[in-house]
Amino acid sequence: MEFREINTFLLIAQQQSFSKAAKALGYSQAAVTIQIKQLEKELGVTLFDRIGKKISLTEQGSIFYRHALEIMRSVDQAREALTEKDELSGQLCLGTIESICASIFPELLAEYHRLYPQVAISIVTESPEELLERMNENKIDLVYLLDRRIYDQRWHKILEIPERNIFVASSAHELARADRELDLDEVLDFPFLLTEKNASYRYILEQYLAATDRTICPFLEIGNTEFIIQMLLKNMGISFLPEFTIRKELENHTLTELKVKEFHMQTWRQIFYHRDKWVTRQMQAFFELAEEWK
């Protein structure tokens, strides 16, 4: 039994596909099939049920999966122990949403790079659903997102911070100059610039409005938070954004929060990794830094 065969088995089980695992490993599908057949021969069991195009673990496969994870964790721990005195290097793949990538990541990752210049970082920006799916497929090391509180037995959560989501406009906007709390309908009458519909805070806003028989029809939709901020600074409308994305503009009074009567909406910044994922030194260093910069 070889570590290569065990690693291939784990990836097939996680991807539920021989072809996807082969592509991820850079092998041919025939080579992957041969490795699994050899592993099954050595163990004397069938590890996968193959019904049509669907792949699933057999009962024996599920038992071996738990032990295989422990084997590979032990190997990784041994490798880490031998190299832990060396300068941190290797790779780190982060999944996040655009608003966090634009507002939090620049300073956070600049500091990470200063501390660990030999680590190569890659970033994937997608919807929370897509990011979590990629994490389940072991294509992303960890996910940093903004959403409702999410709980799932498959994932470990290492950070959870509440964030306000607010209506905001240029300080020159007529509503910003109104020295009072505003009615929601009064705000909705103005042109809106919004993030794309897969942004969690926009979805939550639309659900809230739908529950009160209201709708919002933006004149501009874009997945780039920085572009929305620049349009707001030009007094081109109103937006609905997480407060942390515009903290600098609020502090220097170029943008103003529009306070709406009896309206409070909160989401949470959260960091997840898969429970079956061995936490690398690169991941652990990111977790510690994210906690400091929360």
Rank of each mutant, 00 (worst) to 15 (best):
F3L: 00
F3H: 00
L11T: 01
I12M: 02
Q15A: 11
F18G: 00
G26L: 03
Y27W: 08
A30H: 11
I34G: 01
Q35M: 14
K37A: 07
L39F: 01
E40M: 02
G44M: 02
D49F: 15
R50S: 05
I51M: 12
G52C: 09
K54N: 13
S56F: 07
T58D: 05
S62Y: 10
S62F: 05
R66N: 10
I71L: 01
S74H: 13
Q77N: 12
A78D: 04
A81W: 07
D86K: 13
E87P: 08
S89W: 07
G90S: 08
G90I: 05
L94E: 04
T96K: 10
T96N: 06
I97Y: 05
S99L: 09
E111K: 15
Y112C: 06
R114L: 13
P117F: 06
V119E: 07
V119A: 06
A120R: 13
S122T: 12
S122I: 01
T125D: 01
P128K: 07
L132E: 05
N136Y: 13
E137D: 11
K139I: 06
K139A: 09
L142D: 01
Y144D: 13
Y144P: 02
D147M: 09
H156N: 15
K157L: 14
E160F: 08
E160N: 11
I161H: 09
I161K: 13
R164D: 14
V168G: 01
S170A: 10
H173E: 08
A176T: 05
A176Y: 08
D179N: 15
R180A: 03
E181L: 12
E181N: 12
L182S: 04
E186C: 05
V187N: 05
L188H: 04
P191V: 01
A199W: 07
Q207G: 12
A210E: 14
A211K: 14
T212P: 02
T212R: 15
D213S: 13
D213V: 05
R214V: 02
R214G: 04
I216M: 07
G223L: 06
I229M: 09
L232S: 03
M236R: 14
G237C: 07
G237Y: 08
S239V: 02
S239T: 02
P242H: 03
T245P: 09
T245H: 03
K248W: 14
E249T: 03
N252A: 05
H253E: 15
T254D: 08
E257I: 10
K261P: 10
E262V: 06
M265P: 09
Q270E: 12
H274R: 06
R275E: 13
K277D: 10
W278G: 00
W278S: 00
R281D: 12
Q282W: 11
Q284K: 15
A285E: 04
L289F: 10
E291C: 09
E292F: 10
W293I: 12
